[in-house]
Each structure stands twice: as structure tokens, then as C-alpha cells.
Design a protein around this nucleic acid. Structure first.
Lengths: 338, 338
DNA sequence: TTGAAAGCGTTACCAG
DNA sequence: CTGGTAACGCTTTCAA
């Protein structure tokens, strides 16, 4: 076992073959499984150790046309990787699933335009057999490359306009469940600050809210706002308070919106949760930064990662993944805000 | 621009050459820069679009013997990726540095033994030109593989026994600085719970403490404990209190130790920070979970990542990186505990 | 400035 | 069961 002096050429199948006194074909067969005599096998295994042989994946990839690696692409502005607790969970879930199938997960993070370019090149270069993509946008370079290559893929979340397999949570069911719990706690005048109604996540959350309230649903207690943002939540809450001063609970379409609502309520002199209960959605960092912390809906991060990975693996093994999407259950996290 | 019907073979340099009526060499030259007539260049660029050509990196890697990719290896028990805020910062810092040099960072997370094996294979397969390794251990399979291949590498942190380049923080300087600040706040009987004196991080932190106190250093106020652990902090604080009931501040060698000390102080009826001030080290999750939150030393995560990446890049460009290690400054985070 | 040809390290096929 | 040979897709001499 002489490790090759650094700087010298790495040894190849050819070297092993020569050292063992066989042909390269035979060496390849012991490496990849196949009929090889016990005698030859032993000689080759010794030779491998002798010359310090390590297979070259680039060469293997070239001939086999696959890498046994799957990309995990995080396409988020810089800060998010640090802040969003979900993203780590998704990553871990995907890694676990891929690992079980003996695939290597390679995580590529996109932070600048330059990164976007490079990752697109990496993807098209055949370094991965498929990809899990977190928070893509329609017609960004990554999505386009993936589309053009026909790369097996699964999106986490449902970027509008993309007709490829994705996994997400059951926004409607979760919204219904959290609304029902608020109601069960005795609140009667429950409003909603409904954000992003132009996306299915937004409209589904509103639909769930309406569903849970049934007969008692009151259109006038719904305040639509454009974005899942703190400022929108604050403004929406102010309008809602003017229109319905007797409101005793509010469902923010996201934690950021709910946090904005808490702020507006406090400014108006209402106590949370004593006067008005507040719930959010996402279980993001906002949820624990507010005072009191928000009751909210937890996104099952590891489950999403695992489901996405499995969707890619399914395609890799020749299966057809449903472009319709997979929905996961999202449990409620009960905190002090209601 | 006809995207190849899915399922059909991807087009190659050969196809481009034929479509443009030139040789493959010429195509390669426009791809990689070199003397090509304007006429040929245009014809080739048109042809590339025409046949939907995308270069194959595996082939390129095979001939060039490099991938233009650097691995970022996180070798931690499952949970840590989710919990440790530093790790995301290190990752981002490394990505930024590599991106500038036009290298692709591929992040590999190791979670199980199976992962370890696979990543070792991935590394030795020539999929990356170098690696940044976070929290390695001596003689784990990754370290061994890296060693054997002579792969350009930089460790974040200083795994004992490893003689390769690494980056870390200036434990001595930071300990000196935080001790000085505690002293400047008017405390006079300052103790230290010194952990892990068998590692250089541990002994450096003690050395910094001693340095800052100078003449006033009092050996009897130092309580050595084996590990950077909560339980050790608690036990150490109890012993310190017995020996020196008039103590008015204590420096825990890590946040976990400091958190244990807070616990012991509270159990002994001392108020923090009114009776006894407490500071820690790391700015880990412990620091904000205690009540009051800990003043501590922040590890400059992004800086560490960037420095590690640059160390790898230096080696990649033929330079020699100092195996002695690079030390970064670690600023103090002032919170309520002192 | 260009074309031809020789690899890069592997696997896969085909006789033997 | 084994050895030879032909790819895999690209870059890089070397002549022309």
C-alpha cells in the first residue's frame, strides 16, 4: 500500500490490469460486478491496493451517461439561507431520501446573478442526473435550463406557470384546520388578512378559511392585501379594525402578515391575545419574534425535501411523476397568540 | 432554435462542426477562446443555437483533469445543520469567495455512515478540484481520503492531529478582549470556568483570560472542567462559588458552559447580572436561550468561510497554503448578562 | 487560421 | 470466464 507520491499521476485501470497481469476488461468487471474467477479477483484486488487505484468518476460518467448525483438548488436571496429554518429541514430530508437510494446530493446555492449563470452551466454540463429546486421562479435561467434539458426535476413549492412535478403543503386544509381551532377557542368575530390572492397558495388559504367558517363566513371580515409582507399585514389590520372594531381574532395569511397585524393591534391599544387572537402561517422566524409568539402552521420541511427527492428518483428509475403536484399535511403549532 | 425532442441524443461538438461546415477543433476554439476567423465564429455560433448544443462537462473534465468545482463538506450529526447559525454563514462566505473565482461550490452534507462512504467516493472520483471541510475529525474516512489524494483543502476549525491548512478564530485575542470588557464594567473578582484545556481552543481561551487580567490574575478563581458542556459549567460554577463566594463575574469557556454557570448561580440564589456577571463564547443557540441572554464572542462565520475558500483557491492556482492556520478576529456581542 | 488525429480513463460488446 | 476493441465528448497538439 504505497500511496502515490503527491504530484505523480493517479493510477488507472490500465495500471491495475498490468500489475495483476489481466486485461482492463477484467478489472472493470471486478469493479462493477460480473463473472470473474476467484483467482483473478484476488490478484486484481491486491493490485488495486498496490498501485493505490481510485476510479475516475468523470470517465465513468462519460461512458455511462449518468453521475449518480442529484442537485439540490437553493435559489434565494443571500440572507434566506441563514434565516429560513425550513430550508435546512428540506435539505436534510432530501439528503436522507437520496442517500437511501445511493445518490449523492450536491447542494448548489444561488446568491448572485453570476451564481445563476454558473449553476445553469453546471446543470447542463451533466454533473447531475436530476435536481430538487427550492423557490424557483418561472422563466429564470435555472428553470429554463432544466426545461430545455428535460432534466428530471421536482420543485418545492409551486412556482406559477411551471408544468413540472412539485411538492407543497395542503394550504387549503391547513388554513381550514387553524381557523377551526381558533373558532373552537371561543372567538366569534374572526377576520382574515388574505395575501397574494393571485397565487394558489394565497387563494387556497382564503378558501380554507371560508370553508372552516361555513355559515358564519362574513365577507366583510376579509381584507385582501397584495403581498405576504409585514407592512401589508399592518395596513390590512388597520383597515379591518376601522371596519369591524368588534373583531376578536384574525388569521394572517403568513407569519409576516400576522406580525404586522400584531403591531397594528398594539398601536390601536388592543391586547393580544386577550382582546384579539392572532394566528399566522409558515412557522417562520417571524412567528417567534412577535410578542406573544404566534400560533401558526408548521411547514413539514423534512417531509417536503424527502418527497421532492423521491419524485426525482422516481423519474430517474424510468417512472413518470405526476406534474399535478403532491400535497403534504401541515400541522398546527400552538403558541400564545390566541 | 429547435430544442431537441426529449429522448433524443444531446448534440455534440461534432454536430455543431458539421452544421457549421468546420472541424471540431475550430468549434472547440470558439468555445474556449483562441484564433478563429470572424466568419467561422459566426457560423459556429449560429450552428450552436441551431442544434441546441450544450457542452458536456464530464468530457471536458476528463481531458482537462479539473472540474472548476470545490466541495463544501459539512460533517455534522443531523441536527446541527438546522441549529447552528454559524454553518449557514460559513457556507455563504465560501460560496461568495468561490463564485468570484468562477468556481462552483458543491455542498455535500454528511449525516450517516452511508453518507460518509459516498462522499468519500465522490471526492476521490474527481468531481471536485478541492474542498472546504467543516468540523472534520482526525482519521475519519473523509480526512483520510483527502489526505491520500492530496486534494487541496482547508479546514474550518482546527481538528487536532491534522497537518493541513485551516482557518479559525483568534481564541486568545477574543478571550482577552471579552475579559477586558468585563473588567472595564467594574467587576473585580472575575473567575473563569476553563474547559477543554487539552485542546488549543481551550488553553488559548484561558491564556487570553490570564493576559487580560495581568497582575490581578488569581489562579484560585480558575476552575478547569473537561468539556465545553452545560453540565460541566454547572458543576464548575458550584465549586467556584464554594471556594470564592465573593466572586462577581465569571467567564464560561463556551456558551454552554456559561449557561450551566447561570443555572448554578440561580440555584445558589445569586442574580445575573446584578450579583454576578456572566459571559460566554461562541454566540451559539445557548447564548440567547439563557435568561438573561449572554454577552459572548461571535464567530465571524462568513469570514471563516471566505478565508477557507480562498485558501483552497490559492492551492488551486499553484500557491502553497500555510498549514499553520489563519486566525480571524472574533467580535464581542454585548447582551444583558453582564 | 484551420483540420486531422491523438488521447483523457472508463465501460460495453463481442468473439474466443 | 477473458482479452481486445470501440466508443463516450471533449481539448490539444501538430502540420498544413
Amino acid at each position: 500500500m504505497t500511496p502515490p507520491p503527491p504530484g505523480r499521476r493517479r493510477s488507472t485501470v490500465h495500471d491495475v490490469a498490468r500489475a495483476a497481469g489481466v486485461s482492463r476488461g477484467t478489472v472493470s468487471r471486478v469493479l462493477n460486478g460480473g463473472y470473474v474467477s476467484e483467482h483473478a479477483r484476488e490478484a486484481i484486488q491486491t493490485a488495486i491496493r498496490e498501485v493505490g487505484y481510485v476510479p475516475n468518476n468523470a470517465a465513468r460518467t462519460l461512458v455511462r451517461q449518468r453521475t449518480q448525483a442529484v442537485g439540490f438548488i437553493v435559489h434565494e436571496p443571500h440572507s434566506l439561507f441563514l434565516e429560513d429554518p425550513n430550508i435546512g429541514g428540506i435539505l436534510l430530508g432530501a439528503n436522507t431520501a437520496l442517500s437511501k437510494a445511493d445518490y449523492q446530493m450536491v447542494c448548489l446555492v444561488i446568491d448572485t446573478d453570476r451564481d445563476t449563470e454558473r449553476v445553469a452551466r453546471y446543470l447542463s454540463g451533466g454533473f447531475v442526473d436530476g435536481a430538487v429546486i427550492v423557490s424557483a421562479r418561472h422563466h429564470d435561467p435555472i428553470t429554463d435550463v432544466v426545461e430545455r434539458l428535460g432534466l428530471p426535476v421536482a420543485y418545492v413549492g409551486h412556482p406559477p406557470g411551471i408544468r413540472r412535478p412539485w411538492v407543497g403543503i395542503d394550504n387549503l386544509g391547513a388554513a381550514r384546520a387553524i381557523t377551526a381551532r381558533v373558532r373552537a377557542s371561543g372567538r366569534r368575530r374572526i377576520g382574515m388578512i388574505a395575501a397574494a390572492l393571485d397565487r394558489d397558495s394565497g387563494s387556497d388559504r382564503l378558501a380554507g378559511f371560508r370553508d372552516a367558517l361555513g355559515e358564519d363566513f362574513d365577507e366583510s371580515l376579509v381584507e385582501p392585501v397584495p403581498l405576504y409582507a409585514f407592512a401589508d399585514g399592518e395596513a390590512g389590520m388597520r383597515r379591518l379594525l376601522e371596519r369591524a372594531p368588534d373583531i376578536d381574532a384574525v388569521f394572517g395569511a403568513s407569519d409576516a402578515v400576522a406580525a404586522g397585524a400584531v403591531q397594528a393591534l398594539r398601536a390601536a391599544g388592543r391586547r393580544v391575545p386577550d382582546d384579539v387572537g392572532v394566528v399566522g402561517f409558515d412557522d417562520s422566524a417571524w412567528a417567534v419574534r412577535t410578542d406573544p409568539p404566534l400560533t401558526t402552521v408548521d411547514q413539514p420541511a423534512e417531509g417536503l425535501g424527502a418527497a421532492a427527492a423521491e419524485t426525482v428518483l422516481l423519474q430517474l428509475s424510468g417512472g413518470v411523476a405526476d406534474a399535478g403536484g403532491i400535497l403534504l399535511d401541515a400541522p398546527i403549532v400552538w403558541r400564545a397568540s390566541v
